[in-house]
Each structure stands twice: as structure tokens, then as C-alpha cells.
Amino acid sequence: TQVHVDGVTYTFSNPEEAKKFADEMAKRKGGTWEIKDGHIHVE
């Protein structure tokens, strides 16, 4: 599962880990995350 944050791609083999990471990054940025085309995007 790929997580895209500010133009950087992080790859996780476990989708649950990817979601936890996205959640943390979104909180830090004061933003949100969503799943697009099977990838997670942090806004």
C-alpha cells in the first residue's frame, strides 16, 4: 500500500500500518487522508 505525502511516497506491505501512518501524518499536518486509486493520499 502506498502513502503519498507532500510528493514523497512511502510503501507499506500491511494496509493497516499504512492507514495508521497516514493518520499520524495527517494529524501532524492538520489535514486529512483519503484513499484514491488504491493509494492513500495525505492532504
Rank of each mutant, 00 (worst) to 15 (best):
K36R: 14
A22V: 01
Q2D: 10
G31E: 04
V5I: 10
A18M: 01
Y10I: 06
V5N: 04
H39R: 04
M25I: 14
K36G: 03
T32K: 12
A18W: 01
F21R: 01
D6P: 01
A22Y: 02
W33P: 03
T11W: 14
K19Q: 11
G38T: 04
K36I: 14
A22D: 01
G30Q: 07
I40T: 01
W33T: 06
K36T: 06
W33R: 00
I35V: 11
K36W: 07
Y10W: 10
D37E: 09
E34R: 09
E16R: 08
E17N: 09
K27W: 13
V8L: 13
G38M: 04
F21C: 06
V8K: 12
T32F: 13
H41R: 07
E16D: 12
D37H: 05
S13Y: 12
V42Y: 05
G7D: 09
D23S: 10
I35S: 05
K29N: 15
E34N: 10
E34P: 02
K36P: 03
M25C: 06
F12G: 00
F12S: 00
F12R: 00
D37P: 02
E43R: 14
I35A: 05
N14P: 00
K29V: 15
D23H: 07
H41L: 09
S13M: 12
K36D: 04
V8M: 13
V42D: 02
N14F: 07
T32C: 14
A22P: 00
T11M: 12
V3H: 00
H39K: 08
E17L: 10
V42C: 03
A26Q: 03
D23A: 10
D23V: 11
S13C: 09
A18F: 01
A18V: 01
G7E: 07
I40L: 06
A26N: 03
T9M: 11
A22H: 01
A22W: 01
E16P: 04
S13V: 12
G31Q: 03
K20M: 12
H41F: 15
F21H: 02
M25W: 12
K20D: 12
K27R: 13
D37F: 05
H41A: 05
E17M: 10
P15G: 10
A18C: 03
P15R: 10
G30T: 02
H4K: 06
W33N: 02
F21T: 00
G31P: 02
P15S: 12
K27G: 11
D23R: 08
D37Y: 05
Y10F: 11
E16G: 08
H4P: 00
E43A: 13
K36Q: 08
T9S: 10
A18S: 03
Q2C: 07
H41N: 07
Q2K: 13
D23E: 13
T9K: 09
G7V: 03
W33Q: 04
F12N: 00
F21G: 00
A22T: 01
Y10V: 05
E17F: 07
T1N: 06
E43H: 15
V8P: 00
E24G: 05
D6H: 06
V3Q: 00
H39I: 15
G31W: 05
Y10T: 05
E34I: 14
Y10R: 03
N14H: 10
V5K: 01
A18I: 00
K27V: 12
E16F: 09
H41Q: 07
I35T: 06
M25A: 11
A18N: 00
E17T: 10
V8H: 12
P15Q: 13
I40G: 01
E24Y: 11
I35C: 11
Y10Q: 02
T11Q: 10
D6G: 08
V42H: 03
G30S: 04
V8N: 11
I35W: 15
